[in-house]
């Protein structure tokens, strides 16, 4: 009995260490799991980061959905950034284009990245953007301005209880981050 104990101990310790390593891995696995979970359920309001293709056959003219646009800049981002259209009524399936305006009032070149977010979050699943400035980073030289289009349609499958949703863009200063450097080089 006492001869066996050290063996029993080390076997149990190995098993418990495997649990520890597994849970350490699980902590990191939560990152992709969270993304997948949110992609499926749309609960964090993130929109699809890739362009959709417009293939809707019939526009549902019996319903009208109000889409509102909000813009904000992150702390330390000096650009002026605004939605030229504040709100727009669309029929599900109808293709619409709205414009956003950005200007770099500073004396240095800055690269911006807009991050979209939809509220209520479940509406994000039914918002399809065929063209969006948020798909790419936007460099602006000192004093330069730009009118950025965003083309979208609302999936006719959108639940009946959603009559209005808000699309918010936050503009971040990503000048000098590694992906910016890589993009400029490429």
């Amino acid at each position: 009995m006492s001869e066996q104990r050290p063996n029993n101990n080390s076997r149990l310790v190995i098993k418990l260490m495997a649990v520890v390593l597994g849970m350490f891995g699980f902590g990191f696995a939560l990152v992709p799991l969270y993304d997948v979970f949110c992609d499926i359920t749309g609960i964090n309001g993130k929109t699809n980061p890739y362009a959709a293709t417009y293939d809707v056959q019939d526009v549902d003219t019996s319903r009208t959905i109000m889409v509102e646009f909000i813009t904000r800049t992150n702390t330390g981002m000096p650009w002026e950034f605004e939605a030229r259209t504040k709100r727009i009524a669309v029929h599900p399936g109808e293709l619409k284009t709205v414009q956003f305006y950005a200007r770099n009032p500073t004396t240095r070149d800055i690269v911006g990245q807009a991050i979209p977010s939809v509220s209520p979050g479940t509406a994000a699943l039914y918002l399809n953007k065929t063209e969006c400035f948020c798909f790419n980073q936007q460099p602006l030289q000192a004093g330069q301005d730009v009118l950025m289009p965003m083309q979208f349609y609302v999936d006719p499958q959108i639940p009946e209880d959603i009559e209005v949703f808000t699309l918010s863009y936050t503009l971040y200063d990503v000048t000098g981050t590694s992906s910016t450097v890589a993009m400029n080089r490429g």
Binding site: V19, V20, G22, F24
Partner: peptide, 22 residues
């Protein structure tokens, strides 16, 4: 403890790499 302390270690590690390693 063995189930959740490793998750905390992962969380602080992510904070560390977010802050210092991009």
């Amino acid at each position: 403890l063995i189930a959740v302390m490793p998750v905390l270690a992962g969380a602080v590690t992510m904070v560390l790499t977010d802050k210092f390693f991009g």
